[in-house]
Design a protein around this nucleic acid. Sequence first.
DNA 1: TCGATAATCTACTAAAACTATAGGATAAAA
DNA 2: TTTTATCCTATAGTTTTAGTAGATTATCGA
Lengths: 135, 135
Amino acid sequence: MLSKKTKYGLKALTYLARVKGKEPVQIAEIAKQENISQKFLESILLTLRRNGFLGSKKGKGGGYYLIKEPHEIPMTTVMRVLEGPIAMVPCVSLNFYEKCEDCPDEATCSVHKLMIQVRDSALDVYRGNTLADLL
Amino acid sequence: MLSKKTKYGLKALTYLARVKGKEPVQIAEIAKQENISQKFLESILLTLRRNGFLGSKKGKGGGYYLIKEPHEIPMTTVMRVLEGPIAMVPCVSLNFYEKCEDCPDEATCSVHKLMIQVRDSALDVYRGNTLADLL
DNA sequence: TCGATAATCTACTAAAACTATAGGATAAAA
DNA sequence: TTTTATCCTATAGTTTTAGTAGATTATCGA
């Protein structure tokens, strides 16, 4: 399941991408338009800013804005920041690899074999889409 | 993330598929060989039996066995029973469809658009693999 | 028929993850 | 210096996951 955090994060990014220009947009506006709890969205936008997707401005007229063009933001990076590893098991993760405790040999593991394929197909999709493609 | 339930279920199915013949295999044996908590595995095998993947026999010489040939068991059905919907959001699920509360229009929803692609690519993988392919 | 074996079933619990919420601190603008 | 809006930490409620406990039922072999 996709977490609400990721879902809301994607919606917020899309919202900002649709706004013409680079004017800051307030959390409250995004939350209202996209039916998201404002406080929850606040923490999501914070992590998006800390990870280099958004810029922010405090005080009156402040808010959040994209610091890159939508077509420069691949879904791979967005998903990894919001949702975590793209792989469904750590032992097939490219960026978050971990060995399974219960599994003596990856080479002969049936789960490993299947999940490699699932990971690669998901990667294909995320690599093939930027924020611009979702508009 | 793939749940342990699904992971263990897949391993158990693979184990049974590797056993020659249709002799029942005891839970204890599978649990030990695959490093799985026996009681937990017990409940997993039970749901696999209830969903038509396994047969069982009680008493001495009893255990679980596959009731179909491995190549007749597609990963789509296994995943749906163990892990649930293949789609990451209910609004793009073929078998478990539900409308999102927060989303006024699926046709213009960016998350929907992306998750359709992810679902389809995962489906391709699961449809292209039977239990026999994991051996 | 009896005892051992092994699945069946219900109920329960501990831990982790998810989805928020509270409330004050900080910075900018008017 | 007041208003506005982000920043930040902590925490609480709920759900899901992962696993346990213990009694019951069916089957086999002697």
